[in-house]
Structure formats: C-alpha cells, structure tokens
Design a binder for these strands. Sequence first.
DNA 1: CCTACCGATCGGTAGG
DNA 2: CCTACCGATCGGTAGG
Lengths: 202, 202
Amino acid sequence: MSPRRSVADALGTRATILDRCVGLASTEGLEGLTIGRLATELGMSKSGVLGHFGSKEALQLAVLDRAGQVFRAEVWERALPELPGMPRLRALCDASISYLERGVFPGGCFFTAAAHEFDGRKGAVRDAVRARFDAWRGRLRKETQRAVDAGDLPGDTDPDQVVFELLGMLMALNHALQLHRDDRAPARARRAVATRLGLAGF
Amino acid sequence: MSPRRSVADALGTRATILDRCVGLASTEGLEGLTIGRLATELGMSKSGVLGHFGSKEALQLAVLDRAGQVFRAEVWERALPELPGMPRLRALCDASISYLERGVFPGGCFFTAAAHEFDGRKGAVRDAVRARFDAWRGRLRKETQRAVDAGDLPGDTDPDQVVFELLGMLMALNHALQLHRDDRAPARARRAVATRLGLAGF
DNA sequence: CCTACCGATCGGTAGG
DNA sequence: CCTACCGATCGGTAGG
C-alpha cells in the first residue's frame, strides 16, 4: 500500500548487487564487471541491474564506495580503539596485514587492484581510487607524526618516508599472497613492519 | 623470388606488432589488447594481426616475452657488469628504480600490472607472469646471499626477507609514480633501499 | 523491475 | 597478408 516496502526492497536489491560486485571485482577487476554477467548471476535482467545505478561508471563508483566501507570496518575501526600514535599505527599495520591474510576480498586488496587497473586512465573512477589512497596515506601519516611527537620514533623521522615504506610492505604482502600463494608472507610483512617501527618484539 | 624476403618481412611485422602491444598493454592491460584495435592502429586487418600468433592468449604470451627482453636489457644487463654480491645487488635496485623513474613502459612496471591482472585466474598467461617473478626474485636472492657470504650483510640475514622488502619498495615506487605522479618517490625508494642494505650514503 | 531491441565490438574462422 | 563472415557479448535505451 505505501511505497515504503518497494523502496526498502530496492535498497536491499541494490545492496545485494553491490556485495556481489565487490567479490567479483576484486578478482576480475572493476572493468571486468559486466552488466550481462551480473544480471545472469543475480537472476535479474540487465536493465534491472543497471537501473539501480544508471551507467557502468556509476556502478563502479558505488562498488568502490562499498569496498571502502568494508575496508573501514576491517582495518580502520579495528585500530581506532588503540591510543593515537605508535599503538594505533602498529594496530593499523596489524589490521592491514590481517585483512590481506584473511582474504577479506577474495582477489586481495581491492584498492591496489583498482589502482593498477585505472592508474593510466582519466575519469571519475581513477579520481575516486586516488582519493581513497590519499585518505589512507593521510591516516597513516597522522599516526606516524604523533608517534614522532611522542618520542616513539626518532625526532628526525620523515613521516612520508615511513608511510611509503609501510605501504610497500603491504603491497609486497598482497603480491606474495595473490600471485605466489606464499603463506610465509604475512610473517615477513609483520617482521618488516616491526623493524621499520623499531618494535623488536612486535 | 626466394621466400627469404617475405619471411624477414613477416618477422619484422611481428616485431612491430609486439612493440606496439608492449606499450599499449602496460597502460591498458594484457586483456585490454584487442585484435581489432591493434589492427586499426597498425593499418592491418584483424586476421593479419592474429595470423602472426594464432590466438589472443598466444599474443599475450609473446608480449610478455617481449617485455621480458626489455626488462632484461634495462635492468639485468645494467647490473651485470658489477661484481657479484652487494655491488650487483645495489646496481639491480638502482637499475630497477631507474627503470620505473624513466618510464621505460608508459604504464609503469609491465609485470606488476600483469600480476595484478592475472593473479586471480588460471592459465598460461598467469603461469608465465609468475615464472618471470620467480626468476627475478631468484636473481635478487642470489646476490643477497652472496652479499651475506661476503660479510656485506649480517650473517643472520634472511635473504628472502630482504628480497621481500626490496620488492615492496619497488612496488611502492611504481604505485606512487603511476597513481600519484609523485616525483619525490624515486628518492624515497633509493633511501629505503639504502637503509635496508646498510648503505648510508647509497 | 521486465522484454525487446540498438549499434558496436569481441575473438576467431573460411577461403583465398 | 586480404575480405567476408560467424555467434556471442558489450553498454545502454525505449517503452511499459
């Protein structure tokens, strides 16, 4: 009777589509998401899928957004309870490694994959990927700076250098897990991070 | 009169196709190479292009091979004149950083991009990408072990750990250059490598 | 949300 | 190396 029901249903359908997309896109890429395939897998028509977003690019942006929510919950919110500075920085690294180790996205880090897929292009998707990395780097940088200010890292530490190296360790881990299925890689990443942050026992 | 001429021509055409493919695939991906587009850009027919390889997968494998030749010339052969061990390891890192900084492939590291594109799939292309990384890691590992044996790295150094971290620095550099166009990244990568190898002045 | 359809393009083949 | 063609699929639209 009221439009309530159908609006809620539509939002539910949209969420169902996006969750499927996130899994698919992490292994096959954001461009590998095709409307026809999605429709088949979801038991819908193509126009039924596309109607929720309007265009493929809008769908890709919505998928990035959904993946961002997952990343926030799996990494950022796990570290947030820790004290600012070194404890939280360490927790962020730990949570990132765990996020990759647990295979939160079946194809590895969603954003690293998207970055490689879109870094040579122009447009809204590339801009959105870049903005997410900027935000992530900014968070790591802030906690690194706090760790320096608190004396937990040497006073002449360049926070951007630390963030650069930490991101490298995470990328090496993602690569080792995805291409080589190397299950010793998480331990290597933890060791590398511990060394870089001066935490012998991590 | 003799078939000599046409065979040489065919090989030349094949090389022309592959060189175009390497540039295209580094920015658009190995899957983004389409026969029709290549044909248009090269002023040939689709079947003219495909005839040199037989299938798209065979073309992708040939492109990987061609990219491997470039990498060998731009990185491996530049370091080979250096003495085995630390000098050559340092030269390999230097040459890798330079290879990324100079933009030898317009889309960044050809193999990192291919790894991300194919790491979730099965087949000959994925296997070939993995084999190339195995070879590259093996070379870095050998020189690291020699550096340990020569006393240029601590005796309890785990060569695989060092290689893991060096690859991470290169991936962070590739990412920073491609997604962020950050021209301070090469200096960061050099600094990180120098720290890891215990070369204060690099 | 559906059916029915659009032009474009995909990888690949037949035959020359 | 070419033309001509195959079935399949692409993103998207019209109309309901």
